[in-house]
Amino acid sequence: MAVATRQSEKELIEAAQQGDAGAFGSIYDLFADRVYRHILYRIGSPSDAEDLMQQTFMKAWQAIGRYRISEVPLIAWLLTIAHNSVVSYFRGKRDSVPLNIEMSPPDGAGEPYDALERRYDQAIVRRAVAALPAEQQMVVSMHFLEELDYTDIARALGKTENNIRVIAHRGLKRMRAAMEGRA
């Protein structure tokens, strides 16, 4: 199933690279939700996240000719574009980092106390993520949120895997310091 999906994904990419907008629309269908949630996690505003997602896919369409299937998974490539959009977004809104969005309880959340505890934690965590330098934000969110391999992240960012691991480690330590400072 996964192989078939990957095959179809490859065909879609190739068709899009030939200028097939319909194929790119199918790519959008495949990855829109994931990109949207990633952006939403980072910025907290659903409407802005939707706009940024649109920007991300538009940029991806413009740059799809440069994408190499063999080097990086498409989602990693799309999230890299999304990250740049988020960075630009925060650069434009330097003073406001709206991370006060209501979190829906996770699937299978237990007691109300647990859900509250989790929501509270998530707000702190997201603030800590938002406080990270852009590169650490990128690596931490791509690996721990999107569960991408360090190898794929390294390829997407043009760095070595060890370098990405160091960045992730520093990011976590920084988050810890920020969260302990808040606590």
Partner: peptide, 27 residues
């Protein structure tokens, strides 16, 4: 624990109609 707390579990999904609208806008 910090790494464990980094989860998208609580982040809402893109509603289907919004996704379709977005697709139309993109095309």
């Amino acid at each position: 624990p910090i790494a464990q707390s980094l989860r998208l579990d609580g982040v809402e999904h893109l509603p289907e109609h919004r996704r379709e609208q977005g697709r139309q806008r993109l095309l």
